[in-house]
């Protein structure tokens, strides 16, 4: 009850020539590509650099390209790549640190620029049912706090890797960053805060740089739909300009 798989991993270091290394590994049927990479590291080459933490698509660290497409290998079953090689390369549009590890620092600085908070009130099919009593559980004195949850975006950087604009303008704020601005805009009613957020989006390297290839949205493992956020931001910015122009 196990799968034989060949991994072809792009290896690079600042002091070395880039090359592809091939690893033959055996993994259980239920394994995902990340497990296979970990096996290659554990049994073949302890110098293989890759990022991983949660193994369930919540931390966003492990994002790579599998056979050319951006994926989270922690939720990409090995059996989907039945037979043949699995080619694994680091994300595009990020500086490479080593092997599959890329430098995500500029990306996280952009994410932080909008003060994007990673939790939000629930808004799924479980919504509107009830409220949680967090402090002390005393229903009389406790504030009635709505259920909260983490945002869908795991900040994996996949959308930046898939984005063709990102390849041409690496100062582009990026789909995730713009989606974060939109989320934050939805969470606040403060006029100054809204102004600041829209100003951030309405930049030379902001929303107007998107040229509608939709790759961010197609590649997103968490169905965040960053393109929709970008277009919605444009709408808001245009509405604001319209109002200003006619002094409404």
């Amino acid at each position: 009850m196990s799968l034989q798989v060949t991994l072809k991993i792009l290896r690079s270091r600042p002091h070395q020539e880039q090359r592809y290394d091939t690893f033959d590994v055996t993994v259980p049927d239920a394994a995902n590509v990340l497990d296979a990479i970990e096996q290659a590291w554990a049994h073949h080459d302890r110098d293989l650099m890759f990022r991983h933490a949660c193994h369930h698509a919540s931390c966003g660290t492990c994002a790579v390209r599998i056979n050319g497409r951006e994926k989270l290998p922690c939720i990409a079953p090995v059996k989907d790549y039945d037979g043949g090689e699995i080619k694994i390369e680091p994300l595009r549009n990020f500086p490479i640190v080593g092997d599959l590890v890329v430098d995500v620092a500029p990306f996280f600085q952009n994410q932080e620029a909008s003060d994007f908070i990673i939790t939000r009130p629930t808004e799924n099919e479980l919504d509107g049912k009830a409220i949680a009593h967090t402090q002390g559980l005393d229903p009389e004195s406790a504030p009635t706090v709505p259920f909260n949850r983490f945002e869908n975006c795991v900040e994996c950087g996949i959308c930046l890797s898939a984005c063709p604009t990102m390849s041409a303008d690496y100062k582009f704020f990026g789909p995730a960053g713009l989606a974060a601005i939109k989320r934050q805009l939805d969470k606040t009613t403060d006029a100054n805060e809204r102004e600041k957020l829209l100003h951030l989006a309405d930049d030379e390297h902001g929303v107007w740089r998107c040229h509608s290839a939709w790759e961010c949205t197609e590649a997103c493992p968490q169905s965040v739909f960053p393109a929709e956020s970008i277009m919605a931001l444009r709408k808001e910015i245009n509405a604001q300009r319209f109002k200003k122009f006619f002094r409404l």
Binding site: P164, E215, E218
Partner: peptide
């Protein structure tokens, strides 16, 4: 994907392995 090819990063547009319909239109 060589780091020194920074200036020609747009050539990545032609990595057709990742193309989907939106990218084809692009």
């Amino acid at each position: 994907y060589r780091p020194e090819l920074k200036r020609f990063r747009f050539l990545r547009w032609f990595d057709f392995r990742s193309w989907r319909l939106g990218m084809l239109a692009y």
